[in-house]
């Protein structure tokens, strides 16, 4: 693989949020393909459960689906941004629809990345790298 792979921190702790267990498994597999250690990947089946996990464990990245019962991905994103302790936590939003309104709403809510299903490991890697590149630039300029 090229230099892009080397940028990915293999030890980052990632929370995967999706109401479909199949999709959670797929994202987990893709992350393992990218070299992330399996024990660093945790899962939640909706926004409420994700928030409960975020209260107890420090994560480096949240990958969340948009459409979920109880608490949707956009509401999870807003909840994260409203909570001082984790308000800067990077969030990658996953959606089944390439919907302009969704993208705008997510951007306004402070999303860090947006990926449309289905996506490959390479696309996921690109999106994650882009998130951390931008964060590094903004931290350097701060």
């Amino acid at each position: 693989m090229g230099p892009v792979e080397n940028m990915l921190d293999k030890n980052m702790r990632i929370l995967v949020v999706d109401d479909f267990s199949t999709m959670r498994r797929i994202v987990r597999n893709l992350l393992i393909d990218l070299g992330i250690r399996p024990k660093m990947i945790q899962e939640a089946d909706d926004g409420n459960n994700a928030m409960a996990m975020l209260r107890n464990v420090r994560f480096d990245l949240v990958i969340t689906d948009w459409n979920m019962p109880n608490m949707s991905g956009i509401d999870l994103l807003r909840s994260i941004r409203e909570w001082d302790k984790i308000k800067t936590l990077p969030v990658l939003m996953v959606t089944a629809e390439n919907n302009r309104e969704q993208i705008i709403a997510a951007a306004q809510a402070g999303v860090n990345g947006f990926v449309v299903k289905p996506f490959s490991a390479a696309t996921l890697e690109q999106k994650i790298n882009r998130i951390f590149e931008r964060l590094a630039v903004s931290e350097a300029s701060a």
């Binding site: 479909f20 199949t22 498994r25 797929i26 597999n29 893709l30 299903k117 289905p118 996506f119 490991a121």
Partner: peptide
Amino acid sequence: MVLAQSWQDLSGR
């Protein structure tokens, strides 16, 4: 093969 299972999620929705 793993990636192909994404269609279950999409059709499921």
